[in-house]
Design a protein around this nucleic acid. Structure first.
Length: 498
RNA sequence: GUGAUAGUAGCUCAAUUGGUUAGAGCACUUGGUUGUGGUCCAAGAGGCCGUGGGUUCAAUUCCCAUCUAUCACCCCA
């Protein structure tokens, strides 16, 4: 039957489409042109009557209640830690002027060049859905006169950011970051503290990480180094990989980060920025490292660590996941290769999970001034929440279960349901948390639900109990039931839960 | 923006070398128990086989395009 039905449907579809096409061709000449002009002012085109299946936008994601538990846990831990470190929460708008990010993040950075969600609003203002936090925080710092507060000002915030790039695991177009900034101090102790915070955070969460640290110096010492580096690689250009040959022109510092083995040999011989720092930057960096050692922060010096945003100066750092399982798998792989077996094992090793930083940050000593504020050195860090959530799953971090209500209220019949509605509210007002399912009639189904929720007690209210003004209290563990006067429920419940 | 792989039920996955009715487990609903959970048994519901086009008597299967995801670039959290 279905096949017979299918044929005519398809034929009809084809015919319809042909007819539509012909009709459209006839009408196009005058009306379509007008419509196209109009569409510039009315970008929303709605085809009424056409089939429409809603779909999340690319790179966007629904976070369902089950996963929200992890998010809540993560945000709670992070917020508590930030407050313990003396940070105050700030909330800034999602929309900002386009110019803010051009002046701060930098015209040459990929974020500003290609990745901003930007549009002109109805008043003609060019606006951007923020691609990062720091410029907004700095704007607020200047605009709200926070330089008049006692310095340094320590702020934290979190929320959605938007970057139009190609999605991957742990890389979304709407992403969420937890962000810390310390404005108004150039002391090395501040740098160390924010790195120490990072270590404390991931320790608290139980995620294995490694911190990489480097110094980019100030604009004065970086420019000469850059030209020195370019002239070095130009001589060896032939041996660089195609990517790096391109980087040599676009972003020479990025060559230092290349994973190609041929390039790595050249990189190891290349001049290092650390050696070319000016005396001030040099001593600042040394101090930072001394503070870190003092605080027992475990870090790796990575002279090739480069960060993409234009405003970074001096200290920069990144936090990368360390997955012990991956190492074990690698060892297994070698063993297997010797034996020449197990293709499955190899496949697992090829994709041990996305390799991306969980967080990163650095100093931006010139940013406040370049945005028109009083010269104020500052440092900040951002953590990618999606990536941390992903890492929690990969490293199988256990999240403590939050205890839900311990009492379930079951009802049988309409009269009982009516009474239950009010009873629930009475108990809630007395501070007793109860779950119910008034949308369900069968007692069996309600008991099943109570069992799944793992409650201690279930209240059962039926026709008879409504008449007697009593209620049954069932202990879900022992199965014992007791009939209690409705007036005494609250007392009885409190007794049993204590 | 470039290259590669994949897409079957809410989730995890089968099957079909192109052919009548696309399966399993988990989850969900109902019944066994007319007012009682965990175990068990039975039944049910849920699929335009990602979307659109092409080849064919016939496409979930072959071809093309597209969308989405994932991986490697690019870059970043």
């Amino acid at each position: 039957m279905p096949k017979k039905v299918k044929k005519p449907k398809k034929l009809k579809k084809k015919k319809d489409k042909l007819i539509k096409k012909k009709l459209i061709v006839k009408k196009k000449s005058k009306k379509v042109i007008k419509k196209q002009i109009k569409s510039k002012h009315k970008p929303v085109k709605v085809k009424m009557g056409g089939k429409y299946t809603p779909q999340v936008l690319r790179g966007m994601k629904d976070i369902l209640p089950e996963e929200v538990k992890t998010w809540d846990y993560l945000l709670k831990k992070t917020t508590d830690l930030a407050e313990a470190y003396g940070f105050k929460k700030i909330m800034v708008p999602v929309l900002e002027e386009q110019m803010l990010f051009i002046k701060s993040t930098g015209l040459t950075s990929d974020i500003v060049e290609k990745q901003m969600y930007q549009f002109t609003d109805r008043s003609g203002t060019k606006v951007v859905m923020r691609p990062e936090f720091t410029p907004s925080i700095v704007r607020a710092y200047i605009e709200q006169g926070m330089f008049n507060l006692s310095q340094p000002v320590k702020l934290f915030c979190f929320g959605p950011l938007f970057r139009y790039e190609r999605p991957q695991a742990g890389r979304y177009r709407q992403l969420h970051q937890f962000n810390l900034e310390i404005l108004g101090s150039e002391k090395a102790s501040i740098d160390a503290q924010i790195i120490l915070f990072s270590q404390a955070l991931f320790n608290t969460l139980g995620i294995q990480t490694a911190i990489q640290v480097n110094s980019l110096g100030c604009p004065e010492c970086r420019k000469p180094y850059r030209s020195k580096l370019v002239s070095y690689f130009r001589l060896k250009q032939k041996w660089l990989c195609p990517d790096c040959q391109r980087r040599l022109k676009s972003n020479p510092l990025r060559i230092l980060d290349c994973q190609n083995s041929g390039c790595k040999d050249l990189i190891s011989q290349a001049p290092q920025l650390v050696d070319d720092l000016c005396p001030e930057c040099q001593s600042h960096f040394v101090k930072v490292l001394e503070y870190l050692d003092e605080a027992n922060v475990i870090y790796k010096l990575n002279p090739y660590l480069v960060r993409g945003l234009d405003y970074y100066t001096r200290t920069v750092f990144e936090i990368w996941p360390e997955r012990p399982e991956v190492k074990e798998q690698k060892q297994k792989k070698e063993e297997n290769e010797q034996e020449g077996e197990d293709k499955k094992e190899k496949e697992i090793i090829v994709a041990p999970g996305p390799q991306s930083a969980l967080g990163g940050g650095g100093r931006y000593d010139t940013l406040v001034e370049s945005l028109g504020g009083r010269p104020s050195p500052a440092i900040g860090v951002a953590y990618g929440l999606e990536r941390i959530i992903q890492e929690i799953k990969i490293q199988k971090v256990k999240i403590p279960k939050t205890r839900g209500p311990q009492i379930f209220l079951a009802q049988i019949g309409e009269a009982a349901c009516r009474r239950a509605l009010k009873l629930f509210e009475d108990l809630r007002q007395q501070g007793i948390k109860v779950v119910e399912n008034l949308g369900r009639d069968s007692l069996k189904a309600q008991m099943e639900m109570a069992n799944k929720l793992g409650v201690k007690l279930t209240l059962i209210l039926g026709q008879q109990e409504v008449l007697d003004k009593t209620i049954i209290i069932r202990d879900m563990h022992t199965g014992n039931q007791e009939v209690v006067d409705q007036g005494k429920i609250a007392k009885e419940l409190k007794k049993r839960l204590a």
